[in-house]
Each structure stands twice: as structure tokens, then as C-alpha cells.
Amino acid sequence: MSRPEPILDIRDLTAGYNAIPVVQGISLAVGRGEAVALLGANGAGKSTVLRAVSGLIRPKGGEVLLNGENVAGTGAEALVRKGLSHVAEGRRIFRKLSVEDNLDLGLASVSLSRAEVQRRLEEQYSLFPILKQKASDAAGSLSGGQQQMLAISQALIRKPDVVMLDEPSTGLAPILIEEVFTKLDQIREQGVSILLVEQVVERSLEFVDYAYLIQGGRLIAQGSPAELQKSNAVKQAYMGEVSIR
């Protein structure tokens, strides 16, 4: 099965903090309309990859091609305008602002007519009805699942080409995790490409078209979910060498 032409193409990315590289020579691609997972144990460097790609930190080497343009080293605030959204780890919403203000700030990078802003808000409210109920509440008062929905909605409202999600299921109950994935399905149907970093490996593999596995800051395996599930690599990367049973 061939993959679609890449919309986000990361080549030989090296990144880290201060002098110490956390990820070294990672290459991965997200095809147009594809959902791709980046998996790996804690501390493997997944979040660092996302932070370097989205421009929160400056990559130390390699290329990041977004729609064919090398954007490595471009700041996060500028990359948002080019159609790349990054939903960071840990529900990074503005807790003191209201839900609606949070969504409004999701549009900070685009200038739209008042009517269009309203239309987009309604669009998000129909995708996440709970947010409409809570529109004027402070975002910090929402429950964990609702905060996660808000964070995703804030990224979607500006209609990005690619969304990178960093552990959206973190700390959520299974039923809520299922809800997150249902939403992600709907988002994919709208044609948004997705790069997903996740801990819930099996559920993620069910969802994505393709997956990469990193360990110790390096790529150790990639393939379709079926291929990865067959190999023992995933289990090893997450659980260590020990056999459980």
C-alpha cells in the first residue's frame, strides 16, 4: 500500500535542550489526509520532536518540509499561519480566560469578519456541544476531558492542514479517551492530516494509517499498524525486555 504524498515531511531532525540532543536524526512523514502516530516510551523524545517541528524550540539540524517548504527554524507563531497546529501536552489552554475567549484566541493568527468568526465558533460548538454549554465559564474550571476538547477545538477553529496532538488521552478515563478518538475520526474526515503522539498504543494503532516508533531519541521501527503489531518492537519499547507472562 503506497502512502499519499507528504504534507509534512521531517528529514533527519536533531533537536534538544542546551547542548544535549534529545532526538537525533529522526525522519518521518505525514501524508495528505493521513493520520500518523509517533509512539515511544516516556522520555523517548516524542514531545521534543513535536516541539522542534512546531517551532517552539529551534531544531539543531535537519529539515521540516511543510507543503514542500522548509520551515525548520521558523517560530511557532509564524508556523501556525502556514497551516500547522500543535496541541501541546497537558491541555495548554488559558485557564483564566473563558471558553469562548480561548476559541477566539484560536483565531488570533487569521483575520476574519465578525460573521465568519461566529460561523466558525458555531462549527466548533456543533462538533463539541459541551463547549457551547460552558462558553462563558473560565477554562480552568472545566474537567480534564472538557479541557482537552477545548484545546483540540482551539487548534481546529483556524482550519489547519496538519494537526499535531501530544498525548490527548493523558489522564482521561477510558470512556473519555474513546470520545477523543471519535472526535479525531471526525476531524480526519474533514481532510485534516494528523500526527498523533500517544501512550494508549493499541487504540492509537487502530486509529492511524501509519506509525513510527522511537526509542532513546532515535527511530527504531515504522510501518502500518498491522506490521508493527506483528513485530515485538512496540512491546519492547514500552515495557522493556521482560516478558510479562
Binding site: 488521552s169 477510558p174 479517551i177 474513546e178 500517544e198 501512550q199 494508549v200 498504543v201 493499541e202 487504540r203 492509537s204 512491546k235 514500552y238 515495557m239 510479562i244 507472562r245
Partner: peptide, 16 residues
């Protein structure tokens, strides 16, 4: 603990 089905699910992300 590591032979507990619920644990394996939570840990490996069965989420079921």
C-alpha cells in the same frame, strides 16, 4: 500486578 488483565490494558493502551 503485571499479570493482571486490567493493568496490561491500562498500560499498553487497550482502553477498553
Amino acid at each position: 500486578v503485571f499479570n493482571d488483565e486490567a493493568v496490561i490494558n491500562a498500560y499498553m493502551g487497550g482502553a477498553k
